[in-house]
Write a protein that binds this DNA or RNA. Structure first.
Lengths: 357, 357
DNA sequence: TATCAAGAAATGTACGTACAACTTTGTTGA
DNA sequence: TCAACAAAGTTGTACGTACATTTCTTGATA
């Protein structure tokens, strides 16, 4: 005999549950019914049901019947662990965000299971599966490659099916219904450009990240401001880069110099890029801010410590982490909680922008 | 009927095991034997045995018999989770260390449960207890307040009793037998002082952290070098500070200025402090390095980004994290593995030291 | 002495019966 | 209308039998 009769019944019932044909709380067929349905004895049916009760798929109530319970989610006892996955950690704004999250979680008695995706979708996939397997009470995820279509959406479906609360930070995947806590990046882009326009700049170049949704939004905001001011858009002044190119950006200064030609200002995707730009400009005899004004994003330590302190649109950083963690805890309590927050950006003025006459 | 027959058999067997009358690996009576011993049918015996198999007391092997195995508590199954507790995360060298650890753990299929103690022993206590409760396969701990006697040693005893591998990073508690992976701080202190001595400096001040064992060691190395060179030690040139004072150090410049009086050089506990010193000196008309040479520790980003780039003794950072994680995984495999590593420090020369004529 | 095969012994699967304990539901009676 | 009761339905306990599958032992054979 290949598979014991009770085993075929086990898999049959499991399938029914996982396909959603038998839902949470519903009553299963009675032992006698199943017996006659499958042409097996009641004892054999009981054997199958016992296994599923052990695996927390079913629950038997004497005198009443056998009921379906969610195997992993609804009946799972809390692990008091929250899975957190950010793209990077090395430095920059990430440690601040993580600190914000950790503070809240620890205070609430949770612990944080932290992983980094290095902005690779395969890693995101692996991380999410691992969290599902370990059984976390909730997840805070910084989406990877959010500018591109997301291949992990099947996993997100499974997570939602298991009713595990998830919150995105910094970005989202367009078209996925998961709450997010981030800076309003479009408004941030708009503010950055507007700041330069107010300072009298008319021809403004931009460097944006192509594989992040954030990059797209900041670019959109940049366009908003230019269009509102009635200035022309020049495609040749916009440089898109993807994550893999970052280390090389300083290696090819001519590409950048070509973009900023005729421009009096440049908007950089983040402080890190802006700092590299300061370096490139210095080496090529372009003075910042006298010849070229710079505005960047995130207002990290780098903006302060840069040779020419950078005017930068402030990222909430540890406040964002704090709010994300708090909202996730709310979500765990109440699955209908509206957890999405868009932080209003503010700009911090330093010395990298020159006001034109 | 008060208690079902199969239940009385369950408790009887459980008792036999817990009383030590049936030991690990031994064979239980056969189902038929138990049946006749208790005057019950084989089916009923099987019901009892099934329960004990589920509870990990017994293990049935077809054709052979039923055997006693360690019950759940003694035979804890791996959680594939490593608890990591560092003091801070906000920035500085910590993200690098954490990245190093995370990389190794993730590659090996483990996940990292990360917490921060903020260098408070109460937090360390809470964190360790939580890890014990959650059940981690190993721990990487950065000791808090390692300069002071450790009040958590009871917990460390319990951890060792449960044979959970632990590894300290960056520091240790003197007198506790737990392996550690850190920089050789005494040698680092010695190298820092020697570098200044070689540059012709004779009167060298120092700022050290009093509540870290690291601080004590770096101070000891500083003394080593001065004594070896035959220079006098001046207590009034050494400033000790504790963690709580850090934000205030720039608030009381006169305390620092008093210490560096008559000195041509200053050794700072870390880059963060050194950077504050640069600030204070600038505000008080003391030029670095012309009037005062500075050497610091850790060789973090700050050393590079500082107004006056700092000569600093290099901290291995992410290599340290990597090695710590690797050694902990070794320890999990083999509890006798010698996991202690002292990294040999090297000094990175920048512009904060002036060579005296 | 070593090898192999048969048989004994153990657990695994499957069916059957009987009754106990409990829950649900519908009916009866005050 | 409500409470008590009865009946039906469901799972829980317990016994029995039969045969399958696997492991271990033993004895015969080369």
């Amino acid at each position: 005999m290949e598979m014991p009769k009770y085993m075929t019944l086990v898999t049959w019932i499991k399938n029914k549950i996982e396909m959603g044909e038998l839902k949470y709380g519903e009553k299963l067929y009675s032992e006698n019914e199943l017996g006659s349905m499958f042409g097996i004895s009641r004892q054999t049916v009981r054997q199958a049901i016992n296994i599923l009760v052990q695996d927390k798929y079913l629950e038997s109530r004497q005198g009443s019947g056998t009921y379906i319970i969610f195997n992993a989610s609804a009946k799972r006892e809390p692990t008091m662990t929250i899975g957190v996955a950010t793209t990077y950690v090395g430095a920059y704004i990430f440690p601040q965000i993580i600190r914000g999250i950790e503070n809240v979680l620890t205070t609430a008695g949770y612990s944080m299971q932290l992983t980094f995706t290095h902005n690779k979708v395969q890693n995101e996939s692996r991380v999410l599966r691992s969290m599902l397997e370990k059984g976390v009470d909730g997840m805070i995820i910084e989406p990877t490659q959010s500018g591109l279509p997301n291949p992990n959406f099947k996993i997100y479906e499974e997570i939602q099916r298991q009713r595990i609360p998830v919150l995105f930070i910094n970005s989202t995947y367009p078209g996925i219904k998961i709450p997010h806590v981030s800076m309003n990046d479009r408004m941030a882009g708009q503010i950055a450009a507007q700041h330069l326009i107010n300072a009298g700049h008319k021809r403004i170049a931009g460097i944006f990240k192509s594989d992040d949704h954030q990059g797209h939004l900041r670019y959109a905001g940049y366009l908003d401001a230019l269009l509102k001011a009635g200035y022309e858009i020049h495609d040749e002044n916009v440089l898109w880069y993807s994550t893999e190119d970052i280390p090389d950006l300083t290696q090819f200064p001519e590409i950048i110099l070509r973009r900023v030609k005729d421009c009096t200002a440049l908007i950089c995707y983040n402080d890190e890029i802006a700092m590299q730009m300061v370096d490139i400009m210095k080496k090529n005899g372009i003075a910042v801010p006298d010849d070229l004004s710079l505005v960047s994003f995130d207002n990290s330590d780098l903006a302060e410590l840069c040779e020419i302190p950078l005017t930068s649109v402030a990222h909430p950083m540890n406040v964002l982490g704090k709010v994300a963690a708090e909202n996730l805890l709310h979500l765990i309590q109440d699955h209908t909680f509206k957890a999405t927050v868009d932080f209003e950006p503010t700009i911090v003025t330093r010395k990298s922008v020159r006001t034109l006459a």
